[in-house]
Amino acid sequence: MLGLPDHVRTCLFDLDGVLTRTAKVHAAAWKEMFDDYLRRRAEREGVPFESFDAVHDYDEYVDGRPREDGVRTFLASRGVRLPEGAPDDGPDRETVNSLGTRKNALVLRKIREQGVEAYEGSVAYVSAARDAGLRRAVVSSSANCRDVLAAAGIEDLFEERIDGIVAREQRLRGKPQPDTYLAAARALGAEPGAAAVFEDALAGVEAGRAGGFGLVVGIDRTGQAAELRRHGADIVVNDLAELLESR
């Protein structure tokens, strides 16, 4: 059923890039924010400007991670370390929190301007899982998860939501640690071995593997199937509709 092993009765879905076409919006927001910061830093220090790569840098250092972790991880790849600052740091501060806030403002603006579109194959798959009686949750590092689900018109397809707000409240470590996926399984009363994780991010696939889940499905939207498998995906598809077709 649904291309899943018989013992898997719970489905845990990432949001951006799995359910909604927002991964490119996030990548564009990260690039705009980082390029602005890196350009000003290069001018100040008299060194060449090296832009943020919206494919490689996004996939390797940012995608799937909590916002502040993405800032730290990417900057570390460039040998840059900033003070943490505070969540209410303004855009003029040179801190991890300030850069994360700038990125969030950019992505919210882009979502307001462009709207949110869900992947048809994903909506069909989640609907089929619901009709088959499988439990369903969204697991996202985004603090804007609920707003994105509502804007895409798919909020009612899910029973639980573990997002950036919940992770902060419960002090859950972000992906690639498995904490948020494990919390979603607990919320649905499922053991990890009886749950499937659906992810397009390398960090998210790592989280699914680290959590000992029954199946880790990688969704390849950007031509990184081999990397998804290397990071722990059991199977890789281009769209969740392929799993429906495998019945």
Rank of each mutant, 00 (worst) to 15 (best):
E155C: 02
E94S: 04
P48H: 08
D35L: 09
P5C: 15
G232R: 08
Y58A: 03
G115T: 03
G100K: 10
Q177C: 10
E227V: 13
D220E: 05
S51N: 12
G121W: 02
R173N: 02
Q170G: 12
E242A: 06
Y58P: 06
A23K: 13
R247A: 06
K110Y: 15
R161L: 13
S127W: 02
T10E: 11
V71N: 02
E94C: 15
E117N: 04
P91N: 11
G46Q: 09
R229Y: 02
A185K: 01
R93K: 12
D6P: 10
D63F: 11
V8L: 14
G208D: 00
A150E: 10
A195M: 07
G70A: 01
F52L: 10
S246I: 15
F34Y: 12
R78M: 08
G85A: 04
A28T: 05
R168A: 08
F52G: 09
Q170R: 14
Y119P: 14
P178D: 05
L108T: 09
T101I: 11
V217A: 09
V25W: 05
L15E: 02
R247F: 04
E50W: 12
K110G: 06
A233Q: 10
D53T: 03
A210T: 13
V139D: 01
G232Q: 05
A233L: 07
V25E: 13
R161Q: 13
G189Y: 03
N144G: 00
H7Y: 06
A42F: 10
G153H: 02
R21N: 10
A76Y: 01
R81P: 03
V96D: 05
P192D: 07
G46N: 10
A210E: 12
R44H: 12
A241L: 11
D239F: 05
R130N: 09
T222G: 14
D234M: 06
R221L: 11
A187N: 03
E45A: 15
L244I: 01
H26C: 09
E32Q: 12
I235G: 02
S98H: 11
R67L: 00
L99A: 08
L99I: 14
N238I: 02
D131T: 11
L134G: 01
T222M: 14
V148T: 02
